[in-house]
Computed example of a mutant assay.
Amino acid sequence: MAPALHISVPTTSTATPQGGKPYTQYHVTLQLPLRKHEVRKRYTDFVTLNDGLVSQCGQAPPATIPGKSWIRRTVNNDALTEERRQALEKYLKTVVEADDGRWRSSSAWRSFLNLPSGTSTVNANGSLSATTHKQETGVTDPNQWLDVHRDLKTQIQSARTLLKQREAATTAQQQHALSAEAKGSLVRAATSIAQLEDGLKSIQTASKGDDAGWGGSKRLGDGEIRRRRDLLGAARMEVEGLEGLLRSMATKTSNASSNVQSGAVASSGDKAALWKGTSAAKPGGRVLGGPLKETERTRELDNGQVLQLQRQVMQEQDEDVLSLGKSVARMKDMGMMINEELIIQNEMLGMVEEDTERVQRKIDVAREKIKTIN
């Protein structure tokens, strides 16, 4: 299902045209999955929209716009401005949430929201239609594409962290909550990948001289497009690996729960007996190139998931090595500081020793003089 379209009129402002009277603008906001699309309309634009919907669809929308006041003005009346803002927001939401989608399919509606021409803006269930949603959410600006990709990496890292916490959780409630949060991050990551793929296709089309669609695009070279496609491929593999790891955790928890409830926990001897007398029996002694022993982390994983787990472990080891390198560098700096301090202390001790010798010589001379006097 396509993500729901949220439309609202959260704020207003006052605009003063050059040489004209000030008027109130209503900020109509469409909340998309990764960004907001905002248009500013005045009251007369809403009246024009309503007239266009009636003329094109042959029937008025299920809601009515507030009437025009000939005495009061919203520019100098905050209460009237807020009342009209709420009424106009209700009018737009009613059109969006209506079961009949003909008003949303009209050119008057798309022109009012500054949307591209195409199919219905919103389905009957209040969600974006597939064609229009693809045009609206495709990231066609190269700079914005990189920003969304950075958000994608953050979502993947968040999912990986949640899965680590889920593996260390001790209660079923904590495991369930962390699994739900990790699943949400993975779903958002998958959505971002789809949007980046659509945007990259539009950018590639624009680079060849075709029309890039709504939002515009800048040209990119073939090498940069291939690099970004490789980034998406790596991100997709990482997301699929984390999804497989999440499923294996859920299966493992489910099996553990059923075993505890039934009391049918297989022992290591029972597991070894399953291999006796079969062609797949484990050979005795040393086997060159033989598979490594299964662990609790890899038992429920397939080959792709084991590879993903190995990459994750290698990444963690790299991070540990970097942290260890920083600690060694700090210890080196501390050692150099201690060495400099020891050199200074040795110089001070040498000065004290010289002063001691000089005083001792003076004492010896004084003793000789005393002996002479006696």
Rank of each mutant, 00 (worst) to 15 (best):
G233I: 15
R160H: 11
D210I: 05
I225Y: 08
L245M: 11
G216Q: 12
G184L: 04
A212G: 10
G223Y: 00
E197Q: 14
R188S: 10
L200W: 05
A172W: 02
R228F: 10
L162F: 01
G209M: 05
E238F: 02
T161Q: 02
Q175G: 02
E243N: 12
G223F: 03
R247A: 06
S192V: 02
H176E: 13
A159I: 08
Q174N: 02
S248N: 06
I225R: 13
L220M: 11
G213N: 02
W214S: 07
G184K: 00
A194T: 06
L246N: 05
R188H: 13
T171I: 01
E167R: 03
A234E: 15
D222E: 09
Q204M: 15
A159W: 02
S179M: 01
T170N: 01
E167Q: 12
I225L: 09
G184R: 00
S248E: 08
G241P: 06
E181S: 01
G223I: 06
A180K: 06
S185L: 00
W214G: 04
T191S: 14
L232G: 11
A172F: 01
G184F: 01
A159R: 08
K201F: 13
A182Y: 04
E197S: 15
A177N: 09
A206L: 05
K218V: 15
T161M: 00
I225K: 10
Q155P: 11
Q204F: 15
T154N: 05
D230E: 14
